[in-house]
């Protein structure tokens, strides 16, 4: 099962993707910071919603973002164990 890494509400009309802290295939634990986004005047760390591995990156540095946008997918641990 895959969990979406969604951009939370930041309260800013502009947001851009800054960088990834992990690369596809890296193992992450729920709550790990996996990416950074930028609004004018502040950086904001995005945390993994589940434990597993980063399956796919959908956003890249300097991409303009909208609230709720999916930045990537986490392949959850349970599914990996079953598979």
């Amino acid at each position: 099962m895959r969990a979406a890494l969604a951009l939370p509400a930041l309260g800013s009309p502009r947001a851009t993707f800054s960088l990834w802290y992990v690369k596809p295939g890296d193992r992450v634990v729920e709550g790990d910071r996996v990416a950074e986004v930028l609004i004018p005047g502040a950086t904001f760390d995005v945390h993994s919603p589940a434990s597993g591995t980063l399956a796919e990156q959908l956003a890249f540095p300097n991409d303009a973002l909208t609230p709720g946008q999916t930045l990537g997918w986490i392949q959850q641990e349970e599914a990996m164990e079953r598979g």
């Binding site: 509400a9 930041l10 309260g11 800013s12 609004i39 004018p40 005047g41 502040a42 904001f44």
Partner: peptide, 8 residues
């Protein structure tokens, strides 16, 4: 109860 934008 603040977003990053509201905090700024």
């Amino acid at each position: 109860g603040l977003t990053a934008g509201a905090y700024l």
